[in-house]
């Protein structure tokens, strides 16, 4: 499919000045390998300089530019215009988060929850040197995969359980908790497990897979959460220590 130009509808909202959000329409000429980030940059640089959005690395490593693009949360930098298969594009801010202005959301609630699971590694005191773990031992197989999270918040924006229950920790935080709880080097695994085992923790996940559906890193937080549920039950029976 080769497009000459696209019609972009962009969500505009300044919570301190506007009563209601509105949509502005722009026509944007298509360039080779154009990503949605190129589209919003074009609009902001050359058409409407008052547009606000956030981005940093522009190659899918920092997770700053998550937006709600044509019906699902995506990273603007890694969403090629051509991949959407339509010249009509609607760009909105990431859902489930307060809006600072236009497409820039406040990630505060996301990171507040991230902090609730004690996201920092606490090494066991007897570990003085990097642990030797053979790659074929399988011990780290799933953890290493899930450590790829870039905290872009796409999963958080896609999760309907976050939408209906504002206390729910959300997929990213729980996934991070899993990578620590499954890490044998960590000293406070049981404490963490108790934090995620509360009502606003893992039990709110009902296998919708929205998080896995939108994750730009192709992670499956649902699976991490299932692993946590299993460990919570085992812990209740005194098997997980």
């Amino acid at each position: 499919m080769s497009l000459q130009e696209i019609n972009v509808k962009i969500f505009r909202y300044d919570p301190e000045a506007d009563v209601e959000p509105r949509f502005d329409s722009f026509t944007v000429p298509v360039i080779k390998n154009m990503a949605i980030l190129d589209v919003v940059m074009y609009v902001q640089n050359y058409v409407d300089k008052t547009l606000a959005f956030r981005c940093s690395c522009r190659i899918g490593m920092c997770g700053s530019c998550a937006m709600y693009i044509n019906g699902r949360p995506r990273l603007a930098c890694r969403t090629q215009v051509s991949s959407l298969g339509t010249p009509d594009i609607t760009i909105m801010p990431l859902p489930n988060l307060p809006i600072i202005r236009d497409l820039a959301t406040d990630m505060e609630p996301f990171f507040e929850k991230w902090k609730k699971i004690k996201p920092f590694y606490v090494g066991k005191s007897e570990l003085k040197d990097p642990v030797a773990i053979r790659p074929d031992s399988g011990e780290r197989e799933f953890i290493d995969q899930m450590l790829d999270c870039i905290t872009c918040g796409c999963c958080y924006g896609a999760c309907s359980m976050v939408a209906t229950n504002e206390e729910y920790l959300g997929p990213a935080a729980l996934n991070r908790a899993y990578t620590l709880i499954a890490d044998k080097r960590d000293a406070i695994r049981v404490e963490r497990l108790k934090a995620v085992g509360r009502s606003y923790g893992v039990w709110r996940c009902h296998d919708q897979f929205n998080c896995a559906e939108v994750c730009p890193k192709k992670l499956v937080p649902t699976k991490s959460i299932q692993q946590l549920k299993k460990r919570c039950v085992l812990q209740k029976f005194g098997v997980f220590k």
């Binding site: 590694y121 990097p130 773990i133 053979r134 790659p135 031992s137």
Partner: peptide, 12 residues
Amino acid sequence: VGCFFDRAEDGK
């Protein structure tokens, strides 16, 4: 800090 760098065959 808790990073985990890739390991070689011998686990180092």
